[in-house]
Design a protein around this nucleic acid. Structure first.
Lengths: 152, 152
DNA sequence: CAGTAACACATTGTGCACAATAGAATCGTG
DNA sequence: CACGATTCTATTGTGCACAATGTGTTACTG
């Protein structure tokens, strides 16, 4: 019998002691902190994630963005249209493979990259964790996510 | 300077190494696992969280549910109406304070509680973590969330 | 090379999250 | 007791997530 979320007599652990609620709650808390920091830039956290990938790659297909962020086209298609409406990305259909849409940064979005280090720094500070502890924690959470996705 | 999400030369850490993305990604992964397990019961994960609280308290006000789950009425009001439509909760306005709406379990929802231990057990197994490690991880994540909410 | 399978992206519909606002009830203070 | 402030819930509007489906394109296979 598993004692993780369940007590011996089949009583249920309060949600404050369940791993999923911890992840769910923490994710929303830290996303809320990002919301404050990203407000001046006018983008949401999922939009910022797309920019993070594009700052690294320059150009990505919708598929590549989806693989990286674990998001499908149902989420990305409208999100990318909003980024395009904000003048931050361009969407051009590939000439080699007409199924593919390539997403590229505009100069405005490239400029925004300068703000990223300060934002990341403030997020780290908000956690109250030492950097080593934070890295260790991040690694364990990433391992758990991979495990659940692949062998759940 | 913070090295958590930021490299010395102001290069940005790839999102795979950022704590927020780890939380965001892990939360969605494990919620997806819950989705499979909860499908036979016909409820979503946020709805299940409400049931978890009510299995513990029997009756709660909307405010109490919101405090516990860190959700506001904009999220809870429609969610609770859906739970009512499913025949799992009743919503009655308090006679002592007419502003308050009290949420109570129906017998059908009380029955469902028997399924909870098995679900929790399978979630624990899906993580691939030892129970002690899982508890330690859960504690650290909860600490981080509190820190970000209160001192972010 | 014809036909079918696989792939990339978009669309539709449902259900969260959350900000902003509204409306009704209660509380506190003069 | 009056009345302004606070509390509790609901509503509206925007933006994710995700399942299911549709459409056009490319790849495979006989």
């Amino acid at each position: 019998m598993c004692y993780c979320d369940v007590m011996p007599d089949t009583a249920i652990r309060p949600l404050e002691e369940q791993i999923c609620f911890a992840l769910y709650s923490a994710s929303r808390s830290i996303t809320g902190r990002y919301r404050e920091l990203l407000a001046p830039l006018g983008v949401t956290y999922p939009q910022y994630l797309v920019l993070l990938v594009l700052w690294e790659t320059g150009t990505s297909t919708v598929r590549q963005l989806g693989d990286r962020l674990q998001l499908d086209s149902g989420t990305l298609s409208p999100l990318l249209k909003r980024l395009q409406a904000l003048g931050l990305v361009t969407r051009t259909r590939s000439t080699l493979d007409e199924r593919v849409v390539e997403i590229s940064l505009t100069p405005a979005a490239s400029e925004m990259r300068n703000e990223a280090p300060r934002i990341a720094e403030q997020i780290c500070a908000s956690t109250g964790f030492a950097l080593g502890d934070l890295a260790r924690l991040q690694g364990q959470i990433a391992t758990l996510a991979t495990q659940v996705r692949e062998f759940g």
